[in-house]
C-alpha cells in the first residue's frame, strides 16, 4: 500500500525533481568553475586567506536554491491534491491518515534530500580539492543550514497547503517563514555549527505538525 502512495507522490513531482536536480548539478558545476578560477586568478595562499580568515564564501550562489526547491516540491506535491480537494480520494483509502500523510511527506523529503545530498557531496569534493581539510567541514556546516531552510520551506509549504482554514494557512506560512529565516541569517562561515543539533528540533516539530492540518482537512467541523 505504501508503495502505491510513494508511486503516486513521486509520479507528481518526477519532472520537477529532475529539473531541480539538473539545476543543482549545473549550479555545482558553476561553483566548481568559479572556485577553480579563484585559484587561477590568484595565488592559493591569497584565496585561502580570503576564505579561511576573511570569511568569504566561495559557494554563496547555493544559499537560496534549497529554499526555492523546498517550496516548489511542496507546491507540485500538494496543489494537485488540494485542487478540488482530491486529497479526499487518498484519505478514503483503507490506511490510517497519519501514515498516509507521513508517507506523502517522506516522499517530498526524500526527493529534496537526494538533491541536497548531491549539493553537499559536490561541495565536499570541490572544497577538498582546493582547500585544507578543516575548510571542508566549515563549508559543509555553512551550507547545512541552507539545506535545513529548504526542509523548513518544504514542511511550511506542506502545512500551508494542507490547511483548510485560511487564517491557519497564513499562520502556518508565517511560522514557516520564521523557521526558514532562522537558517538563513548572515553568519561567519561555520557560525551555525554549535547550534545545528538544536536547530533540528523545530524541523522535527514541523514534520509532526503536518498532521494537524491534515486532520483538520479530514475531520472538518464547519460550525
Amino acid at each position: 500500500m505504501l508503495k502505491a502512495i510513494f508511486f503516486k507522490e513521486f509520479f507528481k513531482i518526477r519532472w520537477l525533481w529532475l529539473i531541480i536536480l539538473l539545476i543543482n548539478l549545473a549550479l555545482t558545476a558553476y561553483i566548481f568553475i568559479t572556485t577553480r578560477s579563484l585559484f587561477i586568478l590568484d595565488h592559493p595562499e591569497v584565496v585561502w586567506y580570503r576564505v579561511l580568515h576573511l570569511g568569504q564564501i566561495h559557494f554563496e550562489d547555493l544559499k537560496y536554491i534549497p529554499l526555492v526547491s523546498g517550496i516548489l516540491i511542496a507546491c507540485f506535491q500538494y496543489l494537485p491534491e488540494m485542487w478540488g480537494e482530491r486529497l479526499r480520494l487518498s484519505l478514503h483509502l483503507p490506511i490510517s491518515p497519519h501514515i498516509l500523510i507521513l508517507a506523502h511527506v517522506l516522499v517530498g523529503l526524500t526527493a529534496f534530500g537526494t538533491v541536497a545530498l548531491l549539493d553537499l557531496t559536490a561541495l565536499w569534493v570541490i572544497t577538498a580539492q582546493y582547500f585544507p581539510k578543516e575548510a571542508v567541514m566549515t563549508s559543509l556546516v555553512t551550507a547545512l543550514p541552507w539545506i535545513m531552510a529548504g526542509v523548513a520551506a518544504y514542511l511550511g509549504g506542506t502545512l500551508a497547503l494542507l490547511e483548510p482554514n485560511f487564517r491557519f494557512k497564513v499562520f502556518n506560512m508565517a511560522v514557516a517563514a520564521g523557521v526558514a529565516g532562522l537558517f538563513l541569517r548572515n553568519q561567519d562561515p561555520g557560525g551555525y555549527g554549535p547550534a545545528l543539533t538544536g536547530l533540528i528540533l523545530p524541523l522535527l516539530l514541523m514534520v509532526l505538525s503536518v498532521l494537524l492540518p491534515a486532520y483538520r482537512f479530514r475531520y472538518r467541523r464547519t460550525v
Binding site: 503516486k8 509520479f11 494537485p80 478540488g84 480537494e85 482530491r86 480520494l89
Partner: peptide
C-alpha cells in the same frame, strides 16, 4: 465523489 473526482494526472 461529486464531479467524478479522480487523480487526473494518472
Amino acid at each position: 465523489f461529486e464531479g467524478h473526482l479522480s487523480y487526473e494526472f494518472m
